[in-house]
Amino acid sequence: MNKTETLDTHLGIAAVERDTGLPKDTLRVWERRYGFPQPSRDAHGERLYPREQVDKLRLIRRLLDQGKRPSKIVTASTDELTRMLGEERNDITNAAPGAAQEALLPLLRGHNSPEVRAVLQQILLKQGLQRFVADTVAPLNVAVGDAWLRGEIDVPGEHLYTEQIHNLLRSAIGARTGPLGHPRILLTTFPNEQHSLGLLMVEAMLTPEGAHCVSLGTQTPLADICNTAAAGSFDIVALSFSAAFPARQAVDSLNELRRLLPPRIAVWAGGAAMRGQERKLPDVRVLASLDQTVEALAEWRRAHA
């Protein structure tokens, strides 16, 4: 295989990560655990992924975003994945905010950043921060990703959407001028979890309620989480897990975190990887939806009145 042929028909692991949104470590774990993907190697021993495998990985990522478990889909055929995605799309179409989706997709295709921000800003002003996050951003995340999968928008278009949502939420959170109260909540993710939007959405739900949220960003080692939570007199540690994060690893790490933290510090966990894991996390508050973050906050305050 010559160099030109390789560039045309195969992608390196960094390019696959950018194209699919699946972390490199996840791709390597799946290769060992499930036998897929099956990359070839170049002259330097670096992984090279055929285009058809990358296409399948894109399907897998969309199904992960919709709550499917890796063990159920990674070994499925492309036809099976396409069928499952078609079934999920029917639910997404009913749930997605149609007007916002119709307004945004043409702008994302044209990479029109100012108008994308203007449309989102207008919806935010109408709905308020919490309803904007729960009722518009959450379903839009899925709808925009699905449009990317169908080829209706490209990777830069999807990244443009994500960046605008990040900027808008950070600005709205920063504009809150009310006093910072209790509880003090530490927001972060474990190592290998690179998705930060979930943390930002949780912060946007809790800040208007007067909670004092501090974000460490993503990929914080467990020991650093424990040290920061104790030294900073935090009341709650909240972690986010995308569907791409291995559920078993999340459960084991959360139980270890719970064991290491003082009993007075609560542990909350949410995100797609947490679905159905409540029984395995008896001492962790598992949040099944964004609205449940507000309910959990109210319960904590009642218990600590």
Results as ranks from 00 to 15, higher is better:
Gln101Tyr: 15
Ala230Leu: 13
Gln53Lys: 06
Val155Gly: 03
Ile173Phe: 01
Arg275Asn: 04
Arg117Tyr: 12
Gln219Ile: 08
Leu169Met: 11
Glu102Asn: 14
Leu222His: 10
Asp252Val: 08
Gly128Leu: 08
Ala298His: 15
Arg109Ser: 06
Glu193His: 12
Ala223Phe: 10
Leu105Gly: 05
Asn167Tyr: 06
Gln38Asn: 07
Glu31Thr: 15
His182Pro: 02
Pro221Gly: 07
Gln101Pro: 00
Phe132Cys: 08
Asp19Pro: 08
Asn94Thr: 14
Pro263Phe: 07
Val214Ser: 04
Glu102Gly: 06
Leu180Ile: 07
Asp25Leu: 14
Asp42Thr: 04
Ala244Ile: 15
Arg109Glu: 04
Ile236Phe: 03
Leu108Phe: 11
Met1Cys: 04
Leu222Phe: 10
Ala175Phe: 00
Gly174Tyr: 06
Val133Thr: 15
Pro191Thr: 10
Leu254His: 05
Glu295Ala: 15
Leu168Ile: 15
Gly110Trp: 03
Gln130Glu: 12
Ala296Gln: 01
Asp91Met: 09
Ala298Val: 11
Gly232Ile: 14
Ala100Met: 12
Glu299Asp: 14
Trp148Asn: 04
Val74Cys: 02
Asp135Ala: 13
Trp300Met: 06
Phe36Thr: 07
Phe241Cys: 02
Phe132Glu: 02
Glu299Thr: 15
Gly45His: 04
Val137Cys: 10
Ile153Ser: 05
Leu81Gly: 07
Thr4Met: 01
Pro262Ile: 14
Asn141Ser: 13
Phe234Trp: 08
Gly157Arg: 13
Ser171Met: 06
Arg176Leu: 13
Thr4Tyr: 01
Cys213Val: 04
Val74Asp: 00
Ala143Lys: 12
Ser171Glu: 14
Asp19Gly: 03
Leu169Tyr: 07
Phe132Ser: 02
His182Trp: 11
Asp55Met: 09
Leu107Asn: 05
Met201Tyr: 10
Gly151Phe: 13
Arg285Trp: 02
His159Tyr: 13
Arg279Leu: 02
